[in-house]
Simulated scan of single mutants.
Amino acid sequence: MKFIVLPFVLASCLGLGWAVFVDSQRRSELDLPVSEEEIVAVEAVGLVTRDVEDALELVGSLEAGREVEIRSRVSGQVTELTVDVGDEITAGQELVRLDSAQEQELVRQAEAARKVALAEQGAQQLRVNAAGLEYMRQKDLRSKGVGTAQQLEASQSKLEIAKAELQLAASKVDRAASELKGSRLALAERRIESPLTGHVASRMVQVGDLAKSDVSLLRIVDLGTVRTAVHVGEGDYRELQPGQSAEVRVDTFPGEVFSGRVQRLAPVLDPQTRTAVVYIAVDNSRGLLKPGMHARVRVVLDLHPQATVVPLAAVVDRDGRKTVFVVAGGGRRVRQVDVRLGLSEGDMVEVLDGLDSAERVVTLGSHLVSDGQDVEVVGEPAATAD
């Protein structure tokens, strides 16, 4: 009989213990408030007044504000390189020179041809002057009855022919000038200049190489302003607009904050990622930022100056309402107060109404108390503005 009763007693004890354990677990998961008769140790802080920002945190890589690849529009052998990687250059500075012996010869020939054309034009002008004098002399003789009409007409014809030939000579001068200009332009093509002020980022050619229109010679970057391309989700895209201020930080210079602004937004979103590219321009007047650096961008979407804030830990969600517990009764009791919240930043949240500036709110222990609960404030850590 003992052997039968003993297992039964053991099973009953185990079952009762398991029921108590399950009930305690259920009560702890429900986070039931402590009875008002109990005194709960809590921590409380005073309200803080500070600026609160609603900001968007983004990441991207820096790239040059302007970047160009230098190429030659004509083919030719590279005879001289005046710059190298890292050199600072100015707009219009000569970078590369190509073999120009043939082009120089063509310029000399064009200059000589223009001189010949000018000389012919001058000689023809003298013929026009002589023909004009002869025509006036024949006209005078005809008026005195000495000359004949045939002589007058012949002199007039010679004058008209001389004028026509002068116009032809002038056209030859214009053509020679045009050919000279063309040959000089061809010579200028052998001298490649920088289109912008910046730095030489890379060099892809050596003296003696053959330059062609499809081969890059140098890469020039303007680092006066750099930019970063960040990808923004469709939920935040509508909050951004060109001109908004931004803060940019890079790992190379910890603690440094570089000012930037939203430069432009892509008009379409990527259907795969549901994000849009947004370009942030960053001032780089000190030349510290370099393309390729990892950048963390913070864009301020909204700013509430001198707002009243409390720690997020002080806010409790009770029955769908946002509430806080205010220390009252000389610091021995708490009072539940419904509040309306605004912007949140970090571990602080703005309180729009419901609290007075002199009140203290419960932080540690706020989920364990109820309205009218007796408490003991064990610490008041200073809440400071960021």
Rank of each mutant, 00 (worst) to 15 (best):
A11C: 13
G17N: 11
L30D: 02
V34K: 08
V42I: 15
G46P: 00
L47I: 09
V48T: 13
T49Q: 13
E53K: 15
E53I: 10
E57G: 02
G60V: 00
E63G: 07
E69H: 11
S72I: 06
V74Q: 14
Q77C: 01
E80I: 09
G86H: 11
Q102F: 05
A112S: 08
A117T: 01
G122W: 05
G122M: 05
G122S: 11
A123L: 08
L133A: 13
R137L: 10
S143A: 14
K144H: 07
K144T: 05
A149R: 13
L152N: 06
L152E: 03
L159N: 09
A162Q: 03
L166S: 14
Q167F: 03
A169Q: 03
A170E: 12
R175V: 13
S178Q: 11
S178K: 10
I192E: 01
P195A: 07
S202N: 10
S202D: 06
R203S: 13
V205I: 15
G208T: 10
V215C: 05
S216H: 05
L223E: 14
V226A: 01
A229R: 00
V230Y: 01
G233S: 15
Y237T: 03
L240D: 08
Q244S: 07
F253P: 08
F258W: 08
R261V: 02
A266L: 01
P271Y: 14
T275M: 10
G287M: 05
G292M: 03
M293F: 15
A295F: 00
D302A: 15
H304P: 01
Q306V: 09
T308D: 07
V309T: 15
D319M: 12
R321D: 11
V324Y: 04
A328F: 02
V337R: 15
D338W: 02
M348V: 02
L352M: 12
L352S: 10
G354K: 09
G354C: 07
G354N: 05
D356F: 05
V362W: 03
H367N: 02
L368K: 14
Q373G: 02
D374F: 06
A382Y: 11
